[in-house]
Computed example of a mutant assay.
Amino acid sequence: MGQDARKDALNNRHAELEERLEHEATRPIPDTSVVTTLKRQKLRIKDEIHRMEAR
Rank of each mutant, 00 (worst) to 15 (best):
I49Y: 02
S33F: 09
L21Q: 04
Q3G: 10
K42W: 00
D47T: 10
L17M: 02
K39Q: 14
R27S: 05
E16S: 10
A54R: 13
A5M: 14
R20G: 05
E53F: 05
D4P: 07
I45K: 00
L17K: 00
R51T: 12
D4Y: 15
S33M: 12
E24N: 01
A15D: 08
P28I: 03
L43H: 07
P28E: 05
T36L: 14
E18Q: 13
R44P: 02
D31M: 02
K39H: 08
D31T: 02
R13K: 09
K7C: 05
M1P: 12
T37E: 09
A9P: 08
G2A: 07
K7G: 00
G2P: 03
K39G: 12
Q3D: 14
I49W: 02
K46R: 08
K46V: 01
R6M: 10
E19C: 10
K42C: 02
S33A: 07
T36H: 15
A15G: 10
R55E: 15
V35Q: 04
T26K: 11
H50D: 15
D4S: 15
Q41T: 05
L21C: 05
H23W: 15
E19V: 14
E19S: 10
D4N: 10
E16W: 03
D31G: 05
L21R: 03
R55N: 13
R13C: 00
E53M: 08
A5P: 06
E48N: 03
D4W: 09
P28K: 02
D47G: 12
E16A: 03
R27A: 06
A15P: 00
L10K: 02
A54G: 09
H14Y: 13
A15V: 04
E18C: 15
V35T: 04
L43V: 07
I49K: 00
E16C: 07
V34T: 01
L38H: 00
M52H: 02
Q41P: 01
A5D: 12
K46F: 02
L43T: 08
L43P: 06
A25D: 06
